[in-house]
Write a protein that binds this DNA or RNA. Structure first.
Length: 553
RNA sequence: UGACUCAUGGUGUAAUGGUAACACUACGGUUUUUGGUACCGUCAUUCAAGGUUCGAGUCCUUGUGAGUCAACCA
């Protein structure tokens, strides 16, 4: 138990109050209800965390329920992908995997019940007619000419709809609420439509399908969901949600809306994400730049970091735009704990250690992860010629530059202290080689030299280094809210430098890099092995750069 | 024009009528065989105007601003 009391968000307040009044005999049951028609993204992650974590906090459970009431857009392949993503995020719905389509029979009965109560009717109006009779926010709607059909006629017509007697679009079932209601959704909403379409689970059993409003709340009720958490956009649906529960006299689930999370430089519109894929601006839904779970995972963001991020972003009802910095902060925090450290040189500059024997090499030991006491170590070969970063040497360095320069000494990480004795330039005036001497008794861990070096550099042995590919990932867009500009298309803000490729020299140990593990290339950034790698060509995605507190020059 | 939400530092979230707090960012500093990490410090009288109260970010009224709603989508 934590001794510090963390304040509750407004949803937790509601739950605590319900617990106090014993509203549901101490039960807390939530659900995550994705529609299987697309891939999960950062916005879903927030919803998943809120649903699973809130329930868990109060000893409750969370169901996974696919909201599959529209057969024309949904598919089983998404069902698999979504489950994989939720598991990866670290959540478990145990044996509570449900589908709204499991309830089609029950929903059909509910509809008949409503008809019997004179609270639903079959409408023969066209889609356009229904829309025009709906009215507008400022003017009341008009009642449909079919609104007062008899219960018997409605019942028989609805059965006819179910039996396939009518064509798509020719009839709908509507709830009889109030065409004058200020809330448009209460103006006799459609609850069943005819769709002669094959459903991914129920096949051809049905040719009528319930609309969201007639499926979601009832599904919640059937599953005894106590707190149905959804985003603010559904707030206008709540009166309808409650209306059906009241009229049907079923379990009183309660819908609670929270503001969805917006993150700088990310978009979550399914349609727009698809455009990126279709236009070839990304390689697919799992491109490491995509805000999808698959993309974030591929980029190297750990599930724990994503969970921490959602937690720190908080829960409330106001519009928000979370800074990308917070996400990166959470990612670094987690990665610092779990990443193995390695040395990789991106822009090589050759250093020749003049007093080191020509053919000698030694294996130097380096801790895999100094932040983790239980981590092991690995060996790094050291020899006469090494690469350091070009930016780690300056011909005429300023005073605050802690790296290599003529006459200066630096520590080579896990190795020796070296002293710069000179350098050579090529015909273009660029530094080509740097000459150093090493201090033999300054070996890492057994340094008795007494020499103090302010800076520490990473390096690789020229002879032993292996070439690899680095994919440097940046924001997909140049604007923090690319789809918020009325006069500009979000694609105008596509960042053409969102992925740049670099070739680098890595220490041999990295050839054993594993998919799903995280690596810190010291003094540079965190990287994760990409799935495109092969045995002799390793590819790493830059997850996030290390913080840099020195600007240079 | 209607209804429904919301309004606290640069960002996000707290403060449940009683001294505006925490995190991220930014900027300083300490430590360091990663200019990383860790640690310390600095940065807001709460949209406006009235009202209730001994006391208001919190309650009431009126404004102002922002968002959402008129798919046989979810």
């Amino acid at each position: 138990m934590e001794d510090k009391e963390k304040s509750l968000n407004f949803i937790e307040q509601i739950i605590v109050d319900d617990l106090k009044t014993d509203k549901h005999q101490g039960n807390v049951h939530t659900r995550f209800p994705p529609e299987p028609n697309g891939f999960l993204h950062i916005g879903h992650i927030k919803a998943i965390c809120i649903n699973f974590e809130t329930a868990a906090k109060y000893g409750g459970r969370t169901n996974l329920r696919f909201d599959d009431t529209n057969p024309v857009t949904e598919d089983t392949s998404y069902v698999e992908a979504i489950q994989k993503d939720i598991k990866w995020l670290g959540f478990d719905w145990e044996d509570r995997l449900y589908f709204a389509s499991d309830y089609f029979d029950a929903l059909y009965e509910f509809a008949q019940e409503l008809i019997l109560k004179g609270l639903a009717y079959v409408d023969d109006s066209t889609s356009d007619e229904i829309a025009s009779m709906k009215g507008s926010p400022s003017e009341a709607g008009i009642e449909s000419p079919y609104r007062n059909r008899s219960v018997e006629e409605n019942l028989s017509l609805f059965r006819g709809m179910k039996n396939g007697d009518f064509q798509d679009g020719s009839k709908v079932l509507r709830a009889k609420v109030d065409m004058g209601a200020p809330n448009l959704l209460m103006r006799d909403p459609l609850i069943y439509r005819i769709k002669h379409a094959h459903h991914h689970r129920t096949g051809d059993k049905w040719c009528i399908y319930p609309m969201y409003d007639f499926a979601h709340g009832q599904s919640d009720s059937i599953e005894n969901i106590t707190h149905s958490l959804c985003s603010l956009e559904f707030i206008h649906h709540r009166p309808l949600y409650d209306w059906f529960i009241e009229k049907l006299e079923i379990f009183p689930s309660r819908q609670i809306e929270f503001a969805r999370m917006n993150v700088e430089y990310m978009i979550t519109s399914k349609r727009k994400l698809l455009q990126l894929v279709d236009n070839g601006l990304v390689s697919g839904w799992d491109d490491a730049r995509m805000p999808t779970v698959a993309g974030l995972r591929r980029k190297g963001y750990p599930a724990a970091a994503l969970r921490a991020f959602c937690d720190k972003a908080g829960v409330a009802k106001r519009e928000n735009l979370i800074e990308f910095d917070l996400l990166e902060s959470c990612v670094r925090d987690e990665l610092n704990r779990v990443s193995d450290r390695a040395m990789v040189v991106v822009n090589p500059l050759k250093v020749i250690i003049t007093n080191y024997p020509e053919n000698k090499y030694e294996d130097l030991e380096a801790l895999d992860n100094p932040e983790d006491e239980n981590s092991g170590s690995h060996l790094i070969p050291f020899s006469k010629e090494i690469y350091i970063e070009r930016e780690d040497f300056m011909e005429d360095p300023p005073k605050k530059y802690f790296r290599l320069g003529p006459g200066r000494a630096v520590r080579l990480k896990s190795a020796y202290i070296i002293q710069c004795e000179g350098f050579k330039k090529n015909e273009n005036g660029e530094v080509e080689e740097v000459y150093c001497t090493y201090i033999a008794n300054s070996k890492s861990g057994e340094d008795v030299s007494g020499v103090k070096a302010k800076g520490t550099l990473h390096w690789v042995s020229v002879k032993h280094a292996i070439t690899c590919e680095l994919r440097i990932l940046d924001h997909l867009f140049t604007d923090p809210t690319p789809d918020s500009h009325e006069d500009r298309n979000f694609l105008d803000f596509y960042n053409k430098d969102s992925m740049t490729i670099a070739t680098a020299h890595m220490e041999p140990w990295l050839n054993k890099a594993v998919l799903g593990k995280h690596y810190q290339f010291m003094r540079n950034a965190y990287f994760a092995l990409d799935q495109d790698s092969t045995d002799d060509h390793k590819i790493f995605n830059r997850t996030v750069a290390l913080k840099a507190s020195w600007g240079g020059k």
